[in-house]
């Protein structure tokens, strides 16, 4: 069986092609989904890629959240379907309340683009099973609204339930509280992060590292054995 992983394109999405390519390289079939689709074409998992959906008007992810495709994604995510939100996709997942908290303008007010070191804090999610807990990886980061924020109670809850999935190492690029780069929902099927694993899957391209590939191999393994 080949896993089928949907990649949503909103108006203003930028990284859908790279995400489709990463999925193919990892060994699954990438299925393009359009923001107007109400039907998810029977995909086994969905990735919301990065970009500036709907121009980031109002707030990043605020308008995309109400697009027809998101209704189906929220419903199936609540039923356990793996969903990964990268960068703008993470912002959409927060606005859709699939993940707690919100993203704000970087503390330094600059767009940040760099190779970012992260620690994978847990392998107990659908998207990180092929990493070891505590493993350090380096993948590209590029955003201006990347400051993860939530109230203290939510942050404590995320920490105690092991739902802080990625933490910035060496440098906190955007002022995210507790150096949080990515989180999961309670069930571990929905994960969001600001840095971009889909840009680090081929030795020839970018920094030459393939540290992001295991996101996609993790979910494929889970889907194929499920």
């Amino acid at each position: 069986m080949t896993a089928r992983i949907g990649v949503v394109t909103f108006p203003g999405t930028l990284d859908d092609r790279d995400t489709q390519r990463a999925i193919s390289i990892a060994g699954a079939e990438a299925v393009p989904l359009w923001h107007r689709d109400k039907d998810l074409k029977q995909v086994d998992a969905v990735v919301l890629p990065g970009g500036f959906s709907y121009g980031d008007y109002l707030r990043a992810g605020a308008i995309s959240r109400f697009s027809p495709v998101m209704g189906a994604i929220v419903e199936q995510a609540n039923g356990g379907m793996p969903v990964l939100g990268i960068c703008n996709g993470f912002q959409v997942l927060c606005e859709a309340h699939l993940l707690p908290g919100a993203m704000l303008r970087n503390t330094g007010l600059h767009f940040v683009c760099r190779d970012q070191k992260l620690r994978v804090e847990t392998s107990a999610t659908a998207w990180t099973a092929d990493y070891a807990a505590g493993e350090e990886i380096s993948i590209p980061l590029k955003n201006i609204d990347g400051r993860y924020t939530a109230d203290e109670r939510t942050l404590d809850e995320l920490e105690s339930e092991g739902r802080v999935v990625f933490r910035y190492q060496e440098l906190n690029p955007n002022g995210s509280l507790r150096d949080i780069a990515g989180i999961s929902n309670a069930a571990g099927n929905v994960v969001g992060l600001m840095p971009h694993p889909e840009h680090a899957v081929e030795p020839l391209i970018g920094t030459g590292r393939t540290d992001g590939l295991a996101f996609f191999t993790s979910v494929i393994k889970k889907l194929v054995t499920a």
């Binding site: 503390t107 924020t149 002022g175």
Partner: peptide, 12 residues
């Protein structure tokens, strides 16, 4: 923004 949320744009 809620009072407890840092507002770097306002600070600038």
């Amino acid at each position: 923004l809620k009072p407890e949320i840092l507002d770097p744009q306002g600070q600038a």
